[in-house]
Design a protein around this nucleic acid. Sequence first.
RNA 1: GGCCCCGUAGCUCAGCCGGAUAGAGCGACGGUUUCCUAAACCGUAGGCCGCGUGUUCGAAUCACGCCGGGGUCACCA
Length: 595
Amino acid sequence: MLWHARTNETGIDQMNLFAEIRTLVTDSLTALAAEGVLPAGLELAQVAVEPPRDPAHGDMATNAAMVLAKPAGMQPRAIATALAEKLSLDPRVTAVEVAGPGFLNLRLAANVWQGVVKAALTEGLDFGKSSAGAGRKVNVEFVSANPTGPMHVGHVRGAVVGDALARLLAYTGWNVTREYYINDGGAQVDVLARSAYERYREANGLEPEIREGLYPGDYLIPVGEALKAKFGTTLLDKGEEVWLADIREIASEMMMEEIRGDLAALGVKMDVYSSEKALYGTGQIEAAIQALRDMDLIYEGTLEPPKGKTLDDWEPRIQTLFRSTAHGDDVDRPVMKSDGSWTYFAPDIAYHYNKVQRGFDELIDIFGADHGGYVKRMKAAVSALSNGKVPLDIKLVQLVKLYKNGEPFKMSKRAGTFVTLRDVVEQAGADVTRFMMLTRKNDVTLDFDFAKVLEQSKDNPVFYVQYANARINSVLRKSREAGIDCSDAALANADLAILGHPAEIEMAKKLAEWPRLVEIAAKANEPHRIAFYLYELASEFHSLWNKGNDDTSLRFIQDGNAATSSAKIALARATGVVISAGLGILGVTPVEEMR
RNA sequence: GGCCCCGUAGCUCAGCCGGAUAGAGCGACGGUUUCCUAAACCGUAGGCCGCGUGUUCGAAUCACGCCGGGGUCACCA
């Protein structure tokens, strides 16, 4: 067999064709150096093996000759010619040509592509998995919504992006922790408590006074009932100094219960919930600040007013500041208010310090785009507290614009058009919602049209991908009815050399991109790339399917020819495997039928 | 004013760890159903990749400077 899957150190079979061919190229270059054709000790890091944009240029292209020309002190063409000769000795390579300024274009044997189909069938959902993460620990913090109410549509995107990223990293060998930071230490939970208190009065038959600045939502009515059940009427005539702390506790816990339910409805399960409030009184904040102080990064000082922005109430005041400018920030940031209490930043520093101390090799935060101004100081803090050893990547997730039938849909608490996560999931379904949330890069705003996401047409990428999977399952169903063994093991042993039609080879080539795509997406922390790939994969499949209309030899089921059928069904099933693996990373359930 | 993000086809957006003639969907126009699900497919038309300079063998991609849009900016979280 010319092609065989490689087993890496973690025991996961992987077959990344691009990586394999790159190894072939670098091995060949090393051999040329040993033969004295090339100088010894060339740096090969810049050597890339990629699919050429134009398929007419072949299956793989490498820039090796151009990258090495200068360090080797040779003409690109000379290197290219020597390398081409070496590469053409490999049985996987059927043609090598020097092109353009010095590209080497490779064409690969059909059985290489057929081998990809086999690999997908034997490896199943592990096809494309990698050990790039090498078991390193990564913490993905996302959602972290205030525990003051149910999650609304604005939180959905962050939840989906965070969860899909976590799945993607797990798929690539990282040891992932999903974490939610509960913002329960600030004034907003006092507001929650006061709002809940009014609902408590209401539960006792009094008229609630939902003053300006309190949370008016109905979702606090059950909290009022619960408070009545617990306290009866005992708190009715008491001031908040008596009840505030208790009610804050109870109400925020109930809200977190609500939020956990919201996340579950979306299919998101956190590994760890960390509480901001729990950091107070434990000395953790003080310890984190002290650690910074020990590095001479904390000082008492006065900030300049922001230039170009008029603050009528600006007055210089002495505050405790973090010298974040020493780690790339634009101005130093206050960690303590002038009254001696911590700013929001201080516990967050302690929280991130805690994450560093828990031994994570990398931290990722998913924030809403309105927190953009917070990125540099947080990175500065982590950089300082980890001695620059733990990278923090912060993904800002842009707004979701809601549409109903093409009309913008404004959310307003007052007008009662407050769209909750539950509303979205109930109307669109968790799968559709998740996929749609990943059809844009995180830093671009996303339109979400309730009518469109439920439409069954190509306009709707979720449907389009699911439809391809349904067609594949339809083929498998019919094949089984016809008595063909459609187990993956049986299909993997089919005579795949039958898959020789260009359209079939194209399909296999698309499958071959999957491991590489996963690798790139994980390296960039960009799960949306999976969604885009799946769309392309589905497109390739629909195309092949329709070619069967004109050319019956391209149909998957070939009546009366079991061997041919098995090979073609294997190709369909391999595609289904990759679709399932991809949807799995997005947290979307593949459907078997569209009806 | 500082910082961050965005600017690619009429519209919505991919591509951006530098690679060859820049892609997809929608919309427009023209085709494809005795056939494994036409809920699909195929084709045509449509681009100073915001502008400029630089780095490079090579720039949509990197750097710097502009322009336009959005976000954000000391005791909010």
